[in-house]
């Protein structure tokens, strides 16, 4: 399932295929299943009871949007959540008809020495589907369609390689919780996280939970910035807790509960570097009168690029830690 869920295309704003897949995976296990106007999928497992828990994972992935089709049949595009450094010469799949293409740029023969040493801007790049004219392209692709990378998933012992780990791993974890445990909770698969945490905002308003946890993927940062300063988090060192990121100061009681539970059951865990990045929890916690919220992430190297690397062990530990912590919350923790 991990392979399938990562290979499905689903750039922000076009989450239909991934939503359908998640629906099929979960519908036999849940008590209620709703799609909202924005495309979020919300499933409830178990009876409505206190405390009401919301787990949120975003379905959307980073990618590209087709902005213009040139006369010569080349496609100009905009990136969504990508660094241009990571995309040169990569295979892509475009739009409804799943047209294959490649991100093209000036070949070495035609470029000056100075150009070769500098990073091209996105506006200098194009997607090439092998067509010779605008007319040829227009039969296959419309302006505004989205493209994702044509990256095949593969597994090598503990390590997995593929695209969209941010945040299909989070979706996978939620699906496993739905299928393999009897935790009573709301599970939300949100849209448009990568373009501004948009889906989660209306989900949180709708569900109005007592406590919320965003389950996401975070960059494993293993290139040290300075000597003497260990880089972190590290792949294989367990799920990652956020204390503070750019969008939330996480609820201290939930963090403590994660830490205590991990220590009690000997689950390895680590921390995310403070103030960097954001997740759905950033909008959830300031919804209505405020919702106690936290984030649990799985580390992956090279997120927001065509290919990431993650660890099966980390994913299993994230599932274990979430299950045990939510059981603890359901047993009744005082929040105020």
């Amino acid at each position: 399932m991990l392979k399938e869920i990562c290979e499905i295309p689903g750039v922000s704003g076009d989450e239909d295929k991934i939503r359908l897949f998640i629906k099929e995976q979960t519908c036999d296990y849940v008590d209620d299943l709703t799609e909202d106007v924005y495309g979020n999928l919300i499933v409830r497992k178990g009876k409505e009871k206190k405390p009401k828990i919301l787990l949120a994972a975003h379905m959307d992935e980073v990618g590209m949007m087709i902005m213009n089709i040139e006369k010569n049949g080349l496609l100009k595009f905009k990136t969504i959540g990508l660094h241009p450094q990571s995309i040169l010469a990569k295979r892509v799949i475009i739009g409804e008809k799943q047209i294959p293409g490649v991100i093209g740029h000036k070949p070495i023969h035609l470029s000056q020495q100075a150009e070769r040493n500098k990073m091209p801007a996105v506006k200098e790049l194009f997607i090439d589907i092998g067509a010779n004219s605008r007319e040829e392209v227009e039969e296959l692709i419309q302006i505004g369609e989205l493209a994702t990378f044509d990256t095949k998933f593969h597994k090598d012992d503990d390590r997995i390689f593929g695209k969209a780990f941010d945040n299909r791993i989070g979706c996978y974890i939620l699906i496993k919780l739905i299928q393999d445990t009897d935790l009573s909770a709301y599970f939300a698969f949100t849209v448009q996280e990568e373009v501004g945490l948009r889906g989660a905002r209306i989900i949180a308003y709708r569900v109005n939970p007592d406590v919320a946890i965003a389950v996401d993927t975070t960059g494993a940062n293993e290139l040290p910035e300075k000597k003497d300063l260990p880089a972190y988090p590290i792949l294989g060192n367990g799920p990652v807790l956020t204390v503070v990121d750019a969008t939330i100061i996480c609820d201290r009681k939930i963090i403590k509960l994660f830490e205590d539970t991990a220590k009690k059951h000997n689950i390895k865990y680590q921390y995310k570097q403070p103030m960097i990045g954001g997740t759905d929890a950033g909008v959830i916690h300031i919804t209505r009168e405020g919702i106690p919220s936290a984030v649990l992430s799985t580390p992956a190297r090279y997120i927001h690029s065509p290919l990431s690397i993650a660890s099966i062990k980390d994913i299993k530990n994230a599932i274990k830690l979430l299950t045990l912590t939510i059981e603890e919350i359901l047993r009744g923790v005082k929040w105020n």
Binding site: D228, L229, P230, V243, V244, Q273, P274, M275, I276
Partner: peptide, 17 residues
């Protein structure tokens, strides 16, 4: 100021809040 690294000599690196 939020602590993001504690180095070998015991100095703290930080990000801003």
């Amino acid at each position: 100021l939020i602590v993001k690294h504690i180095d070998k000599q015991g100095f703290l690196r930080f990000a801003s809040v």
